[in-house]
């Protein structure tokens, strides 16, 4: 007669051993699965150009930045905008527009209109000024140049209704040229970075970005890193 108690014990032991084996396999699989690289805050702060300012014109490895058609594991290395100084022209124009109604006290060109019409005219003038400021600010803020580990992307909002996005893969970059010119560019350290790509991909130009030397340095690092990665992929 079978000793059921012993048989049950044996069965339980086998089950437990099976469970341990399964959990060991799962642990091994977890170790092999690539872990999302999360850089600690202290490491990020050491990188020059890392900032939490959402209005920054040069942001190295910015946090909380996402863009359209971003790939799942793709991270932003550099986020660039036109240098702040390049906005001086439209800021001066906007200031002039805002102060223009004060001239009406010395030059009453609207005196032929009744009071209520003059009031609405002044309101309309300020609405147009607001529209001008809004359009210029939005165009500057959302026209960005993005460098990721894989691609270079140029997001251009020419005006409020015209959007253009160009991109090129890092491994297709053939040449990077930086240009710093003019008094403003020399004093405030901004210029153009022209990226020539192979094949039919369009050339990308980063216009009036801060620290063009650092930008081209980052691009060179990424190109070098990509070149070293490609031979490893081919052998495996």
């Amino acid at each position: 007669m079978v000793d059921l108690y012993v048989a049950q014990n044996k069965r339980n032991k086998q089950k437990e051993e099976h469970k341990e084996t399964v959990s060991d396999e799962l642990e091994q699989k977890d170790e092999q699965r690539p872990v999302a690289q999360v850089e600690p805050e202290s490491e990020l702060r050491k990188d020059p150009g890392h900032t939490h300012n959402p209005l920054a014109t040069y942001a190295y490895r910015p946090e909380n930045v996402c863009f359209v058609n971003q790939e799942p594991q793709e991270r932003v290395v550099l986020l660039l905008r036109r240098h702040l100084v390049t906005n001086i022209t439209w800021v001066l124009i906007a200031t002039g527009l805002a102060l223009a109604p004060l001239l009406f006290t010395w030059f009453p060109i609207l005196s032929f209109l009744p009071g209520r019409f003059q009031f609405i005219a002044v309101l309309f003038w300020y609405l147009i000024t607001t529209a001008f400021i809004l359009e210029e600010t939005l165009s500057w803020f959302f026209s960005v140049y993005i460098i990721t580990e894989k691609r270079v992307i140029d997001v251009d909002f020419h005006n409020i209704i015209h959007r253009e996005i160009s991109e090129a893969r890092i491994d297709k970059i053939q040449d990077v040229t930086r240009r710093v010119g003019g008094i403003g560019g020399t004093v405030f350290n901004y210029g153009d970075v022209q990226i020539q790509t192979a094949g039919a991909s369009p050339n990308i130009v980063f216009n009036l970005v801060p620290s063009p030397v650092r930008v081209s340095g980052v691009l060179q690092e990424l190109r070098t890193h990509t070149e070293h990665k490609v031979p490893q992929k081919e052998t495996s």
Partner: peptide, 21 residues
Amino acid sequence: YLVFAAVVVRQVHLMTSTLQV
């Protein structure tokens, strides 16, 4: 101008969907 303001709202939506910071 109201039509322009509506276009601004629409375009801001497009801009924020293009880039999130």
